[in-house]
Nucleic acid binder design. Structure first.
Length: 284
DNA sequence: ATCCAGGATCTCC
DNA sequence: GGAGATCATGGA
């Protein structure tokens, strides 16, 4: 690797492993215990966890400043967030202990939307494989065997049949519907910033195949709506396990409980809980 | 082999 | 408006 293009960053609360492997993103490759490659924002980057509180970015200062600092959410004070969501909650303190260096990536909207449409009723390894296939088929080559996630433009004339042949299954029609509604301005991302979260959620759910969970993931992982609390099977299990000792609760009740406990930082809380639940196979 | 996956939709009442 | 079946596919 080019020695000129390498910079070491010292920062607290940042673990590559926890941030990349917590289930929020799909386009990373683990090279060894400390080294990863990540593809995002039409680029590929190599990274290495040097010490507990430092990470090497194999990139230029310019790309770090304009892209990766933002992508890895490195300007945010996670210590303060962790303190806030766990102050009166020993359960959350326990969950956070399992991923003290987890940060919420700022992913691109289109990639995030398609990825989480694909995630429904699917396994993470298979989701990753399908996304790789989509990128290889429609995306821009980055090196010999790496491809950027395709843009909306690059997927604008994709057909449902094509997508089915790539293994997307029943989700193919959902993806073409998303592409259609974004291309013909039925849904206009430039209007998102002036919508409140409820309105934005409702707008995203106009896409066939986007329900509450996928809409919440897209808002949390790519639209900076940190107050949302996506509830999947893992989060439901751990919320019931931790906060009502095995009783049954509806999604609405869990949603309300999360809002009450974690407020504007519910999304961060959700991600710590998800990681903890999956690591410990809570409820399985 | 058979189960099941970071759900959503359709159908039923 | 809530419960239950159904959906494509392949890794475990």
């Amino acid at each position: 690797m080019d020695k000129q293009k390498k910079m070491t960053l010292t920062i607290n609360d940042f673990s590559l492993k926890e941030t990349l492997e917590c289930g929020q993103c799909f386009r990373f490759q683990k090279i060894d215990e400390f080294t990863y490659t990540v593809i995002a924002r039409q680029r590929l980057i190599h990274l290495r966890q040097a010490t507990h509180d430092s990470v090497i970015f194999y990139t230029s200062q310019k790309d770090f400043d304009t892209i990766w600092k933002d992508y890895f959410d490195l300007s945010r004070d996670y210590r303060a967030i962790k303190k806030e969501i766990s102050e009166h909650d020993s359960m959350m303190q326990t969950a956070i202990q399992y991923a003290t260096g987890l940060r919420l990536l700022q992913q691109e909207f289109f990639e995030c939307l398609i990825s989480f449409i694909l995630s429904q009723n699917n396994h993470i390894p298979r989701i990753k494989r399908i996304i790789e296939t989509l990128s290889k088929t429609y995306g821009t080559p980055l090196d010999e065997n790496s491809y950027a996630f395709p843009t909306l433009q690059q997927m604008s004339s994709v057909t449902e049949d094509e997508l089915r042949q790539l293994g997307t299954g029943f989700r193919a029609k959902y993806i073409t519907d998303a592409i259609r509604k974004l291309s013909d301005n039925t849904i206009d991302p430039t209007a998102f910033s002036q919508m409140d979260t409820a309105k934005l959620r409702e707008t995203l759910m106009k896409i066939h195949g986007v329900g509450p969970k996928v809409a919440d993931c897209v808002m949390l992982f790519s639209l900076k709506r940190y107050e949302v609390f996506p509830i999947d099977v893992w989060v439901k299990r751990i919320m019931i396990d931790l906060y009502c000792h095995g009783c049954d609760k509806s999604l609405k009740e869990i949603q309300a409980l999360a809002k009450e406990m974690f407020g504007k930082n519910a999304g961060f809380a959700q991600q710590y809980l998800f990681y903890y639940a999956r690591q410990n196979k809570i409820g399985k």
